[in-house]
Simulated scan of single mutants.
Amino acid sequence: MLLVTLLSGCAGLERNAHADALAAPAGLQRELIETDGFVLTAFARISRRGAPLDLYIEGDGLAWLSRSEPSLDPTPREATGLALAAADPAPNVAYLARPCQFTPMAMSPRCGIPYWTGKRFAPDVVASMNQAVSRMAARVPGQRINLVGYSGGGALAILIAARRTDIAFIRTVAGNLDDEFLNQIHHVSPMPESQNPIDFAARVATIPQIHFSGADDTVVPPVVAQRFAGATGGRCARAVTVPGLAHASDWSSRWPALLAIAPACSSPQHQDGK
């Protein structure tokens, strides 16, 4: 047990160092945000208070070691969500890690395996993340928020947006936007203690949004984004499949070009084909 703890600690240090190396060149500064449920790790660059905030949410990280063995530390090895944030040239960029990622476990006593497995999208997780979004939003008073979520962070982007009135755009990358359907695809257990983003599709239907999927993604295949866009009614949501990319591909190298694709709502007349 001592050896496992030591190895886990060393791995955590390596993953934290990797995150710092991603963030530093982009001017993203590490900080901790205390919420009612968890202490969350964040990185931020706020350089123009009169501009919108692009806010990124990390994926599930290292939640599982295998199909049946959960990890003891969900901190991501690659931090794709943070890499996307670092590739964003906007003046105001913030990134939120998920509960129990990067933050020392002792700082969040509630951290435990359920919160990166079956309860990863539980209401208390959503509430904690939403509190952190509000803290970041307070730094750009009166400005709108552009949410971006990678993988499981895409699920939280939808669940958070459903609670707020200040979201301008939603973008997801390889987003788990229907966890019940996705778990059926992979023949894994359902997550009854988590909220399913597709159940909230109607609540975010009027927010312009784009859901990017990799054409080669077998973890979250493009049909998931397509189903979600359809559930919103399709007027403001687009599902875009990107050739040549899989779930764990280098999305950040393509991100500036994908960011240039602006989310927009079609007019009702256009939607009806009139």
Rank of each mutant, 00 (worst) to 15 (best):
P208A: 14
V133H: 05
N92G: 14
P104S: 11
P222A: 13
R144N: 03
G50W: 02
P190F: 12
N130I: 08
V242N: 11
P89D: 15
I145R: 03
A137H: 02
D60M: 08
G175H: 08
G118E: 10
D217W: 07
V173Q: 00
A202F: 05
F38R: 06
A94N: 05
L55F: 00
T5H: 15
C265H: 12
Q131F: 09
L159K: 05
L259D: 04
F43N: 03
G214D: 14
D272K: 15
V204Q: 14
A137Q: 02
A17V: 15
R120Q: 13
V133N: 03
R49Q: 03
A51F: 04
K274S: 11
G50F: 03
L3G: 05
P222L: 04
A127N: 07
N130A: 10
L177G: 04
G61F: 04
T75C: 09
P76N: 11
K274A: 09
G153W: 11
L3A: 02
R203W: 09
S151P: 05
G118F: 06
R164W: 10
N176F: 12
I261A: 14
I170G: 08
P263I: 14
L22Y: 08
P268Q: 15
P192C: 11
S213D: 06
R110Q: 11
I160C: 04
R77T: 06
D60L: 11
V148Y: 00
A42G: 03
A44D: 03
P25G: 08
W251P: 02
Q195H: 06
D20Y: 15
R238L: 05
L65M: 05
F169K: 09
H211N: 06
W64F: 08
A262Q: 12
S266R: 15
D36S: 13
G59Q: 07
A239C: 09
W251Q: 10
